[in-house]
Design a protein around this nucleic acid. Structure first.
Lengths: 405, 405
DNA sequence: ACACTTTCTCTACCGTACGAACAAACTTTC
DNA sequence: GAAAGTTTGTTCGTACGGTAGAGAAAGTGT
């Protein structure tokens, strides 16, 4: 129970950045004397420090306590479909070192794992942090992760990864705890903690890349579903005219707004549209968005069509989950309002009354580091929930008696 | 903190039905001596009683503790679109008295509230329970309930109810606490606690009635969404051929499998199908299902078509939320496997790989009392979470210091 | 200079949980 | 059937964590 109250105090100090002992006592409902004792413990761990005094409100000036963001480090790994990126962050998920390299991750697990370990070592070296000072390593993978087997990627989507586990590899290489989750889930977590979804307990993050995936934050927690595949928005049917999908369906969202689909559509329309400035070869989603910004009608029309298809799936999301915010990430979202405006318009006619008008739509502002920071956030959240996992507190005590069903 | 451990013990006793002190100590991780003290307190409240001894496992026989299901009563109210039903239950949500009457609830709030209070009084009298012995009253309403205003019905869907609140009315009339939630949500809660969804933390309940609504249990809790309208599955578009909906969309699920739609479809097809045994007048969903059981081809075909439309919306539900179980309730579900079989077939081709094959589909087995029992469960759950709300413990002490953000 | 506030610490006290010892009741073993 | 071993439940001394209240420190306002 001291662990309980001490953790409570630690979380408050983390959140409030600067608070006095008296403030903490009021906020938690405890007495000032007890809080003083707890703070004494926390000061000894090095996670909290006294940082000057605050303003008086008619009496003695309070001694302000601050969380030591640099007391430890966290590593976040973004294992994408075609790249590996690693961020070393402090305890507020500020990026201290960053590495990113292209790699065919799906087809070459061993190479990807080697690259990952090399990059982790590089960011540790660059930041001058030893592995012992890591709270842990979080990994985002482009695959569902089953709660029943949280160390493996889904063999159904990435068959070559059978038997390979980023988690086990990192634990073996660096001797620290590692956790793993789907990339869209961690994108959602990043948005909730550091992006557009702050101060909301229900949020959806839609990642538009090679395919389309959604991460769901429900009641403040990542929702993984019974088998870990929640958020499979990419296989909602949106266009019967489109071809068959690997999943057995026709016209999946993946087939109409995935990177390849956008490029193909531009290429097809390009044949009959002589005025477009877009090239036929070496076309990427980035080039299409650029073209749209330069006023190219073809590019704009393709983006608008994609928004229409996206709206159908997003409407289902809004109707079923009623999130406070939906954040969009991925290459196409650099189109900004060119994507959001038609999306809102289509959505307005696709959802009853209150639910959609009160849903905030936003483009992710976290950039390429978003997913990796989400992975690091997973580690941070676990540590704030149970401060025992901070290296400086390791083995301090047991947890609270739980329900144990 | 004694409240914490005492509540923990109480929940365990409730769940396990018969446990010894030593068992409780092992389960909670506490010492036997502490548990003895806690049990002594619990015995004094009357909620727990010693009920004989259990079998020996090589030593002294344990004294078994049992939860007193009859120590208090709970009232569950089902305010449907066209009826008012009230159940009086014990602390395991077993129905002790039941009343149900037809009433145009949507159009006559005052009459419905009067009827509700009369029925509550009747079940109290029949069961010989005074209002003081009630833990509380739970109410299910055919409307979303906003977390921002948990005492009112959504004025958008049931405009006449503006200013009327079942919760306030019950509190005034019986002097006990009352809580309210959407009927589909409470159907889902009932299924999770007493029906097909037991031992799962993710469950969806789909209610097919006048319209179609879904209640979602996520991570063991009712998911209400940011504005309380989560689960609006009825406005997912499933058939572009169907007409426009009040929501502005075309071909909403509500328009294709709602009671009226089924009746209308049968009536239209009836004109060209002379062999059908179904009547043209006085047709109800119940009659259609009966006809199907008697082998009527027209009835069967209409049910199969409905299953196809339902599958599209359910596929979206499965893809997005990946629940362990989906339970179906409402009149149409009396068709049983005639509905589920085509639903499974359509679903197989509508969802990628693992998610759908591992989702259990089932028909609700709770019958007409399901929603009311769900409403009562809402009260029970609150009481088990914080035993202070049990009348015999009222005002016993304050809660644990919370986070207080 | 004075009274009043607010913060933080120190000490006496109290409730709660634990461990150890013990009694009770039962099974197994010889 | 007596002895030995188990399991349950209680009793009692102890320790820890928390509170309340007094007091010191450090400020504000008149």
């Amino acid at each position: 129970m001291r662990a309980l109250h001490s953790g409570l105090a630690l979380r408050l100090i983390w959140r409030e950045r600067l608070v006095s002992r008296a403030d903490l006592a009021r906020r938690t409902g405890m007495s000032r004397s007890s809080m003083s004792a707890i703070v004494e413990d926390l000061l000894a761990t090095g996670l909290v420090r006294e940082t000057g005094t605050g303003d008086s409100s008619g009496g003695r000036r309070p001694i302000l306590l601050g969380f030591q963001d640099d007391a430890h480090a966290i590593c976040g790994v973004d294992l994408g479909a075609t790249h590996v990126a690693v961020a070393l962050t402090d305890l507020r998920i500020g990026v201290k070192a960053w590495r990113s390299e292209a790699h065919p991750v799906r087809d070459d697990p061993e190479g990807a794992l080697d690259l990952m370990c090399r990059l982790v070592q590089e960011v540790l070296t660059e930041a001058g942090v030893s592995a012992q000072r890591l709270v842990g390593i979080g990994v985002a993978v482009p695959s569902p992760v089953s709660p029943a087997d949280p160390e493996s990627l889904s063999p159904l989507l990435v068959p070559r990864w059978r038997g390979h586990s980023p988690v086990r590899r990192l634990q073996a290489a660096f001797g620290v705890s590692a956790v793993m989750d789907n990339d869209a889930n961690l994108g959602a977590l990043a948005e909730q903690w550091w992006g557009a979804g702050q101060d909301g307990r229900d949020l959806a993050y839609v990642k538009i890349g090679t395919g389309v995936g959604a991460g769901l934050i429900i009641q403040g927690d990542i929702h993984r579903g019974a088998t870990g595949v929640a958020g499979e928005i990419g296989h909602i049917p949106v266009d019967p005219a489109a071809g068959p999908c690997v999943c057995g369906l026709r016209g999946c969202l993946n087939l109409t707004v995935g990177s390849q689909a956008l490029v193909d559509r531009v290429r097809n329309l390009r044949k009959t549209d002589e005025r477009s400035v877009l090239p036929s070869r070496g076309l990427t989603v980035g080039r299409i968005v650029e073209g749209a910004f330069e006023g190219d009608a073809l590019a704009r029309s393709v983006i608008e069509t994609a928004a229409g298809h996206l709206a159908i799936a997003v409407a289902a999301l809004v109707n079923l989950l009623n999130p406070a915010t939906i954040v969009f990430g991925g290459g196409l979202t650099r189109a900004g309002e060119m994507l959001l405006r038609p999306l809102r318009a289509h959505l307005g006619g696709r959802s009853p009354s209150a639910s959609v008008t009160q849903t905030a739509l936003a483009i992710s502002s976290l950039g390429v580091e978003g997913i990796a920071r989400g992975a690091a956030t997973l580690v941070l959240r676990a540590a704030l929930d149970d401060p025992n996992v901070f290296p400086s507190l390791r083995g301090a005590g047991t947890a609270v008696p739980s329900v144990t069903p």
